[in-house]
Simulated scan of single mutants.
Amino acid sequence: MARFALTVVRHGETRYNKDKILQGQGIDEPLSVTGFRQADAAGMFLSNMKFTHVFSSDLLRAKQTAAAITGKNKFCKDILIKYDARLRERKYGVAEGKPLSDLKAMAKAARQQCPSFTPSGGETLDEVRARAKDFFEFLCQLTLEESQKEVVLDTAGNGLETLEEKSVFPWTNHYNGPEFNSDNDKATKMLDVNILVVSHGAYMRNWIHYFVSELECTLPTTLTKSQLSSVSPNTGVSHFIIKLGNGNIKPEISCVCLNQDAHLVNVDSGNV
């Protein structure tokens, strides 16, 4: 059985975020001064995480956030950030560059709920989820390939250093699942791959909904329904442990934390 950790971070604040203006894919706005501070704070929070792979949306605000996080990380000095269009924010079509209040007005005129409303030229929630599903399946395949490489190297007598989650994860004190507490079974603390992904708010909410609704992701017992449906704050951190079986067995996903923002306590975000 292959296992990997997935840490997903929303990009830092832009001036459009602060002013509640939709960016989507068509507005490639850089981080604000506050956004860079948030990204640095997230980087410090994750500085001891030994990531093996880093992926980011190819939009500027995500790329800048990924660069700031890896720049603070003790183990990512030589790691290559891979940019992937599948991680882009939801496309909002004619609503991009307009206030969020305009999107709500469009949805109301169409007699639809705002989160599920698709403006002209925009992506449906199903289309966003399809992108997220495709990318996640890519990560699963990557992990399986990496685990096979490790088996080959071990057989040849060239042992690889295996990642041990308990020694590197900054949120172990907030999680009571078996992955962190079964000290008698060291194998449960080992990972084949440790992945960092930097993406966007609406995209991440749809990705997490896919985890919960289709893959039956296990959630922290303290998580409320409103927290589950909320958009992550800028540089909010979510963390998952994924176990992959053989064949067509559904992955087992455990959510360790969702939209963690403790690292922002001393950052004046001005974000709502």
Rank of each mutant, 00 (worst) to 15 (best):
M1Q: 14
A2M: 02
A2V: 04
R3N: 07
A5M: 15
R10V: 06
G12T: 06
R15K: 14
R15A: 10
Y16D: 01
N17T: 11
D19Y: 07
D19S: 15
G26K: 14
I27S: 07
D28I: 03
E29L: 04
P30Y: 07
V33D: 13
T34H: 12
T34V: 12
T34M: 05
F36Y: 11
R37D: 13
R37M: 12
A42Y: 02
A42V: 00
M44Y: 07
M44A: 12
F45V: 07
L46P: 05
L46E: 01
N48S: 12
K50Q: 14
F51R: 04
T52Y: 00
H53S: 14
V54I: 13
S57L: 09
D58S: 09
A62V: 01
Q64N: 01
Q64D: 05
A66R: 09
A67L: 14
I79L: 15
L80P: 07
I81R: 06
D84T: 02
R88K: 15
E89D: 14
R90Q: 02
R90C: 01
K91M: 10
V94Y: 04
V94C: 14
A95P: 06
A95Q: 04
G97Q: 11
G97E: 08
P99E: 08
S101G: 05
L103A: 03
K104N: 15
Q112I: 12
F117G: 03
P119N: 07
S120T: 13
G122W: 02
G122K: 01
E127R: 06
R131G: 02
R131C: 03
D134I: 00
F135K: 02
F136S: 08
E137M: 14
F138V: 01
L139G: 05
Q141S: 07
E145H: 12
E145N: 13
E145I: 14
T155K: 08
G157C: 10
G157K: 07
N158Q: 05
N158G: 02
L160E: 09
L160V: 15
E165Q: 14
S167K: 15
S167P: 05
W171S: 01
T172A: 05
N173D: 15
H174R: 11
N176K: 14
G177Q: 05
G177D: 04
E179G: 00
F180C: 07
F180V: 12
A187D: 13
M190Q: 13
M190V: 08
M190F: 06
M190K: 14
I195N: 05
I195P: 03
V197Y: 00
H200P: 07
A202H: 02
A202E: 00
A202L: 03
R205K: 08
N206G: 12
N206T: 03
T218M: 09
T218I: 14
L219E: 11
T221G: 05
T221F: 12
L223T: 07
T224N: 04
S230Q: 06
S230F: 02
V231C: 10
V231I: 15
V231Y: 11
P233T: 12
N234S: 13
T235I: 10
V237P: 08
V237N: 11
S238W: 12
H239Q: 15
F240G: 03
K243N: 15
L244H: 11
L244D: 04
G247M: 08
K250A: 12
K250S: 11
I253F: 08
V256F: 13
C257Q: 15
D261C: 10
H263K: 06
L264I: 03
L264G: 03
V267K: 09
S269C: 06
S269I: 00
V272F: 12
